[in-house]
C-alpha cells in the first residue's frame, strides 16, 4: 500500500505541470486552515463534554437563562435595527435611483465604511457623552443603524436602478397613478433588494459584538459568544456559534429562493 502510494506521489511530482487549477491551491489551503478546520473544531467542541460525546452543552445553554434572554434581546435589537434601516434606507435608495447623480451620493454613504468600525463607534460614544445622553438600548440601536445602513441602501439602490423603466410606464399606461405604480410594480420588483438588504443587516446585527458594549454596556449574542470563549467555556460557546451559523445558512437559502435570476448575479 505505502509503496504504491509513494509511486503515485512520485508520478505526481514527475508529471507536475502548472495548470490553471494549480493557482487555486493556496486559496484551498487557506480555506482549509482557517475556515473548514475551525468549523470542524466548533462542531466537535459543541458535542464534547469532558472529552466525551454528549448533548450536555446544549442542555447547559437551555438552562442558562441569561444566555437565552441575550439571544432574545439580540433578536429584538436585530429586528428593530433592520426595520429602521429599511424605513430610512428605502426612500433614500428610491430617490437616489431616480437621479443621475444618485450613484455619487450612494458613494458618500459608503465612504464612512472605510473607517474602522471600532473607531466610528468610539467616536459615536464620545459624541453621546459630550451631549450628556445616557447610554442604553436606544444608543445601541442608533449605533447599529448607523453602522449597517449602507448595507441596506446598497442592495436596494442596485435593484431599484436596474428596474426597467418600461414596467413603470406599462403600469401607468394601464391606468395606475403614481402611488399604485409604486405599490404594484416598483415594490414587488425591488423585493430581491429588500431581502438581501434585510439579511445583510439582520445577521451582522445579532452577531456583532463591541458596538453594544461600547454604546450601551448591554451584551448581545455576539458579545456572549465572545465571553464564553474568553472564560474557557468552549463547549457552550461552540453551540452558540452553531446557532449563528444555522441562522446564516437559513437566510442564505431564503435569499437564493427569492432572488431568481438577475439579482443573484450581483454581490449584494
Amino acid at each position: 500500500m505505502a509503496e504504491s502510494f509513494m509511486v503515485k506521489l512520485k508520478n505526481k511530482i514527475k508529471n507536475f505541470r502548472i495548470t490553471r487549477s494549480v493557482f487555486a491551491y493556496p486559496y484551498i489551503l487557506f480555506m482549509l486552515l482557517f475556515v473548514v478546520i475551525p468549523l470542524a473544531l466548533i462542531l466537535v467542541n459543541a458535542f464534547l463534554v469532558d472529552g466525551k460525546l454528549s448533548f450536555g452543552n446544549f442542555i447547559a445553554l437551555l438552562r442558562d437563562g441569561a444566555s437565552l434572554s441575550t439571544l432574545l434581546l439580540s433578536f429584538l435589537v436585530g429586528i428593530i435595527t433592520t426595520l429602521l434601516c429599511l424605513v430610512i434606507g428605502y426612500p433614500v435608495a428610491y430617490i437616489l435611483s431616480k437621479r443621475a447623480w444618485g450613484g455619487i451620493i450612494v458613494l458618500l454613504f459608503i465612504l464612512p465604511m472605510w473607517v474602522n468600525f471600532l473607531i466610528r463607534t468610539l467616536a459615536t460614544r464620545a459624541i453621546f457623552e459630550a451631549l450628556n445622553i445616557d447610554l442604553g438600548l436606544g444608543t445601541v440601536i442608533f449605533g447599529m443603524v448607523y453602522n449597517f445602513l449602507p448595507f441596506m441602501i446598497l442592495p436596494l439602490h442596485t435593484t431599484l436602478t436596474n428596474i426597467d423603466k418600461s414596467y413603470l410606464e406599462a403600469a401607468q399606461d394601464l391606468g395606475a397613478d403614481a402611488v399604485t405604480v409604486f405599490i404594484k410594480t416598483t415594490l414587488p420588483l425591488s423585493l430581491p433588494g429588500i431581502i438581501s438588504g434585510v439579511t445583510m443587516v439582520f445577521i451582522p446585527t445579532i452577531s456583532t459584538f463591541a458596538i453594544s458594549q461600547l454604546l450601551g454596556g448591554t451584551y448581545l449574542f455576539g458579545d456572549s459568544i465572545y465571553n464564553k470563549f474568553n472564560n474557557g467555556l468552549y463547549g457552550v460557546g461552540s453551540v452558540m456559534s452553531l446557532i449563528m451559523l444555522l441562522l446564516v445558512i437559513v437566510s442564505n437559502i431564503f435569499i437564493s429562493k427569492y432572488n431568481k435570476g438577475e439579482a443573484s448575479k450581483n454581490l449584494w
Partner: peptide, 8 residues
C-alpha cells in the same frame, strides 16, 4: 411596448 414590458 417594444420589448413587451410584461410584469415579470
Amino acid at each position: 411596448f417594444q420589448k413587451y414590458a410584461l410584469f415579470p
